[in-house]
Each structure stands twice: as structure tokens, then as C-alpha cells.
Design a protein around this nucleic acid. Structure first.
Length: 168
DNA sequence: GGCGTGATTGTTGCC
DNA sequence: GGCAACAATCACGCC
């Protein structure tokens, strides 16, 4: 699984985000930029919600079943986790409603599938609140990551020995 | 008992 | 530009 290693540096780095968080001259501004940036992308993706390329990719490639997850791929337990996307926040809401209406269906496979279909039918106005939450969370994640990198550079890893408990 | 799997979309970073 | 990985969730299956 060399891919894992390669990708580990991917999600880990977020150097660009961290860099942007490094000079928080105006945090709110930064957030605004972030939000606008994402919003534009989101708009596009929402507009062409019909057939996502990802879907085509997925169907054509039939990604390996045992490819993803691996919860313990994170080398450092202290490293901030990637924030959930807008879809995931929607999924939370959707799951509650779905389970109320369909108490028999407990499998996240079915819920996820239903949620995906619903998501595609939603308008941008409906999705925007979830995008908004996700954008804020991502900003938080960027800050946390910048802090994490800073601590690491300061030689914080020495404390990793007691990483079982991170009491502040 | 504990861990992996599956199903979904969005985001991000590397090549 | 494309691709691959990971984020949450949890019942279920397997070892």
C-alpha cells in the first residue's frame, strides 16, 4: 500500500491551508475568502449535480472494496481530523429523519444511498446552509492544523509518548 | 471482543 | 486536469 503512504502526506500536509492561516491578518476576511471560494465551487457542483464525474469514475473503475477507511492510518493521533463536508452534515440530519420514518432500516449503506439521491435533488439554496457549516469547520480545521504544525516544529513530538492523554 | 466493511458526496493535495 | 484518499455513521460479519 504505497498509496497509503503517498496519500498520508496529502491529507497531512494541508500546507497551503496552514500557510493561509499563518497570516491571519483578518480572520474574518480570510473566512470570507474561504467561503466565497468554496461557494463558487459549490455552486458549480450543485448546478451540475446531475451526473457527477465521480460517479462515472466510480462505476467505471469499481474502486477496490477494501481500499478506504483504515481508521488507524493517521500517524499522529493529535493531528486534526479532516472536517466533514457539507454532505456529511446533511447526512447527519437526513439519517435522523430517515430512521424515524424507516425504523427498520438501520444500515448506513441504505441511508447513505438514500441520502445521496436526496442530495442530488436538492437545490443550491437548500444545500447552502450545510456548505456554510462545512466552510466554517474547515476554517477551524485550518487553524488547528497550523497550530499543530507549529507545535510539531517546536518539538512537541516529544510529548507524543503520552499521547494517550492530551490534557490541556 | 474488536476491527473492517459498506454506501454516500465533498474536499484537497499531489502528479 | 485527473485521481486517490479521507472525513461520519453504525449494523453486521468475520476472526
Amino acid at each position: 500500500m504505497a498509496k497509503k503512504a503517498t496519500k498520508s502526506k496529502k491529507s497531512r500536509s494541508s500546507s497551503t491551508s496552514a500557510a493561509s492561516a499563518k497570516n491571519p491578518s483578518t480572520p474574518s476576511n480570510q473566512k470570507m475568502v474561504l467561503r466565497v471560494k468554496s461557494s463558487e465551487k459549490m455552486k458549480r457542483s450543485a448546478q451540475q449535480s446531475v451526473v457527477s464525474e465521480r460517479e462515472k469514475r466510480r462505476t467505471s473503475k469499481s474502486r477496490p472494496k477494501s481500499k478506504q477507511k483504515k481508521k488507524n492510518t493517521r500517524i499522529d493521533a493529535k493531528m486534526p481530523k479532516k472536517p466533514p463536508t457539507a454532505f456529511f452534515y446533511f447526512l447527519e440530519d437526513f439519517r435522523k429523519e430517515f430512521q424515524e420514518q424507516n425504523p427498520d432500516i438501520k444500515s448506513m449503506r441504505d441511508i447513505g444511498r438514500a441520502c445521496g439521491e436526496k442530495w442530488k435533488t436538492m437545490t443550491y439554496e437548500e444545500k447552502v446552509k450545510y456548505y456554510d457549516i462545512a466552510t466554517e469547520k474547515r476554517a477551524e480545521f485550518d487553524r488547528a492544523m497550523a497550530e499543530y504544525i507549529k507545535r510539531k516544529e517546536n518539538g512537541e513530538d516529544q510529548e507524543t509518548e503520552d499521547d494517550s492523554e492530551f490534557d490541556e
